[in-house]
Design a binder for these strands. Structure first.
Length: 175
DNA sequence: AGGACAACGGTCT
DNA sequence: AGACCGTTGTCCT
């Protein structure tokens, strides 16, 4: 799977114009909400249940117009699961976060990279902890594979969406 | 092997 | 200015 990452300076810039299309879909790792525009996916978060509207979307784009399309979300999730094709992603973040996310998409499926490796790759070998924070701020889980970032001793470290989920994702990729 | 702890850099209030 | 962290290295038991 190829991920093309486009970065913009503010979240508003993403929602501006056509608004955000979003949908809920079931994945092997639980329910997730997907948000996108014609420029690419800009949101992927996990949920314990399909009930209720994902608050994260409204929080990220307080003024945006939303259009719901669960069928398209499901189709996209299947494509991601199939690990095929090119996925365009458009995200807003600080320059540092963008750097981290761009490095994350280069970690091949089936392998992992340590927070220390990522920090060194960016040229800031002491910013390991900040790299962890940047991973946690990843707005497009799974597609931007922050679950492939682990501790230097190969222990899992943390995961915003639960360590069980991180373990399950890595397990499914190691085969 | 595992716990306590200081130091680190980026981000938010 | 201070507090929070998906960390790491070191110094213990």
């Amino acid at each position: 799977m190829i991920v093309e990452l486009e970065s913009v300076s503010s979240a508003d810039e993403i929602a501006q114009g056509e608004g955000i299309t979003w949908g809920l879909a079931e994945s092997p790792f639980g329910w997730c909400s997907l948000g996108w525009t014609s420029r690419g996916i800009s949101h992927l978060a996990f949920h314990d249940s399909p009930d209720g509207e994902p608050e994260a979307l409204r929080k990220r784009w307080p003024l945006a117009i939303f259009r719901r399309n669960d069928v398209a979300a499901r189709t996209e999730i299947l494509k991601i699961l199939r690990d095929s094709g090119i996925h365009r992603v458009v995200v807003a973040g600080t320059p540092f976060q963008i750097q981290v996310w761009k490095h994350l998409i280069r970690i091949p499926k089936g392998s992992v990279s340590s927070y220390l490796d990522l920090a060194a790759a960016i040229g800031k070998p002491r910013a390991v902890r900040a790299v962890g924070s940047a991973c946690g701020a990843n707005p497009v889980a799974w597609v931007i594979p922050c679950h492939r970032a682990v501790r230097v001793d190969r222990k899992l470290g943390g995961y915003r969406w639960g360590l069980d989920r991180k373990a399950a994702m890595l397990e499914s990729e190691s085969e």
